[in-house]
Design a protein around this nucleic acid. Sequence first.
DNA 1: TTGGCTGCCTTTTTT
DNA 2: AGGCAGCCAA
Length: 896
Amino acid sequence: MATDLTQEFCALRDTYIEKQFGRLNDMQRQAVFTTDGPLLILAGAGSGKTTVLVNRIANLIRFGSAHGSRQTPRPATEDDVKALRNAIMTGTDAPSWLDGMLRQNAVRSWNVMAITFTNKAAGELKERLRRMLGGEEGDEVFASTFHSACVRILRRWAEEIGYPRSFTIYDTDDSQRVMKAVYKDLNVDDKFLPIKAAINQMSRWKDQLVSPEQALASPAKDTKGALTARIYAAYEKRLKEAGAFDFDDLIYQTVQLLAEHPDVREFYQNKYRYLLVDEYQDTSVAQFRLVSLLTGPERNICVVGDDDQSIYRFRGATIENILNFEKLYPGTKTIRLEQNYRSTSNILNAANCVIQHNTERKGKTLWTDNGEGDKVQVYTAENEQDEASHIADVIGQHLKEGGHLADHAILYRMNAQSAPIESYFTRAGIPHKIVGGQRFNDRKEVKDIHSYMSIVANPRDDVRLRRIINEPARKIGNTTVEVIADLAAQEGVSMLDIISHADQYAKLSRAVMPLLKFWQIYQRLQDSLETRTLDEFASDVIELTGYKAMLEADAAKGHEDAADRLQNLGQLVNNVKNYCDQHGEEATLEGYLEDIALISDIDSYNESADQVVLMTIHSAKGLEFPYVFLIGMEEGVFPSEMSKYSEADLEEERRLAYVGITRAKKELYISNSVSRMLYGRTQRNEPSRFLREIEPEYIEETRSPVLEQRSRLGGWGSGYSDTVPGGASGYSGPSGWGRSAGGYGGGYGSGYSSGGRSGYLNREYNAGEGRGFGSAYANRGQSAGGYGSGYGRSGGSAGYGSGYGSAYGSGKTNGAAQQNTAKQINFTGTPAPKPVSSGPKHYEPGDIVEHKVFGRGQVVAVKPAAGDQIVEINFDKVGIKKTMANFAPLTKITEE
DNA sequence: TTGGCTGCCTTTTTT
DNA sequence: AGGCAGCCAA
């Protein structure tokens, strides 16, 4: 009888628990209820991956392995059954006295570890756990990134492997500085082996857990390989001396620690009995090893990933980790999540079309029961300004229909592509935010202050010391620094140790005063750290080091960016303050420095501001937006030039395209531009192959009106300019030539001399557009009054005219007189490409204007600025905004 | 040692 | 195009 009751209770318990996760689909629920043993979740884009992770953790903590189990801790009673049935029927929580019966083998929250790639993802996970489980239990789950988790482990055990507890984390810039020193030491020429190449190789070795010894021992394929191994060894030695880890070391050294110290390993295996790893497709060999070292004998390891979204191969991620997971963990249960909740079917189908062209994949097809939605809009622009203006048009349209700026994201392949959009949006007054690119913490002044802060935390850090020892200038030049470094090496102490006794070294006699002064500053900083709060310490650093005085002096001299820099330092102090507020008692200098080393721009991106977001597709992974603009869909841009020659690289680009497309919820806008300025020259690019891979039924194409007009006039094909080595007839640079694919009307050549000394042509382009005009100019034309003599050449194919040009010099030294005399010679009257808006405009307060994006508004103030006007407009819908008169998409309606 | 100039190089993505 | 490093001159 009791057995029957227990059986009934178990069945009811399943129902009850399932009801708790009733909003999940079958596959998702399966994933949630698979609590023990290895589990691989293949989660397509938008398939509710984070939801599954959160719910799975919640289930572990609330019910453990109760679901599906036919046993209970004690035999069930009739009261148990009744109470549970009642809870199910009424949809209420079961009474707490049933807890023991329901929470069979429930996992304690601090036994769960969830690893993600970005702080943002970790934060989101924590936030959602908090909401689901409540503050106490939610917060006790350890959710962090690979790198933060490693830092945490290393902080605790650093001394075991010969590092100081307050080790420094080096960023790429620091690494490069170390590398330069190593090159000098080993007498390596960076022309023979570029520093970047060495760093890259070293980084790959660390990703693959190859030690310097192994690298040295491995049969070198060539001299460069052998040399790189020696460089690697020397680099590691330096880092160890400085008590520093670089990004790769954080993982690598943690793996070494866990592998070589069974006690440490067991400590963590006992502590974290349930492991979850997000974005598993982006793990490296080292990260895989780390995860397996943390996984205890119970093998409660759950990984979530999507092989189609693996986009970090270039930095050591190996897609094999996910492809081979089942082999490495026999008995793995694999669950596929293929239902997409994010996008319309048109968007999803477009994504599927593209990704199907890849061969190296597990294979899965996303589907959705969301509606068809609008077709994917493909726009061919004339140039990047046109592309920007088109995007502004669309956004403006959406705003008129009641949409929000923040619902729009502009995604691109590389950071450089943000510039034209940024400039257009700024001038048009469209609020936007660029995520990524130059990070705040990468700014020179910010890094300098951080360097000061970090040498107080870690006096051994010679790299950072060198960075700031003469910043601001305090008469400690290179020669002196090298002498100190030599002395330090001789005595086996840090450079700061030498500086503290500078008066004892004859070799330093000339620089004794400045050095002792520096030492004094250092001591005052140490003192400040001990006696004041962290943010006060930060502002002391800015003051006591003379940094502030230096910038103020610069600003007084009229140095333009000095004021900005001062402001940035103010922001830095604010950031320290925020850090303190967040961490309260636990705020430490090391902690702050760690944060800034590991936290990226995207982590602080906050959706709440009503702005259009601009970021790379890489940064956008894991995010979603109602309206997405995927720009620069051109061969040579996306896929990038560098990936064109390798099939594996191309597949990665395609996965990136897939990631980009699947960010869109409601509408996707893809654009390509016929001509684009890239790396300082104008290129003509074919539309991306990824664009052609999308079945026509899912897309709707439009071309820029300018292009339409031109093709009516002349009918042009697909001319573009190619680059071939020059060399003949005294050309120093490459010379370009135009090629015609299908009979077009004109060509123009524009050449300019870059060196300027003898006025020869350095580069020349012919492009299949326009009607044959050309202009050549000298870039730094110093000779002959700043002239270069330029001409366009017709390069090979019949059918377009020869362009030629007028030359001018814009040399900074003596070409000024010729400046602005450039003429675009126009032979046929065909209009030259138009600027964003034509003709100078003048506004006066009271004018009623129509803005393409913001709609109707009234001018409230006008300020002249650099040949233009800053117009302040009060818009009916969005309030007051400032725009540049000549660039904003503005039309004057009436004057009042 | 500093500061200015020239010439050189980079331009894929980032924790 | 633009930034930076290294070189040279003061």
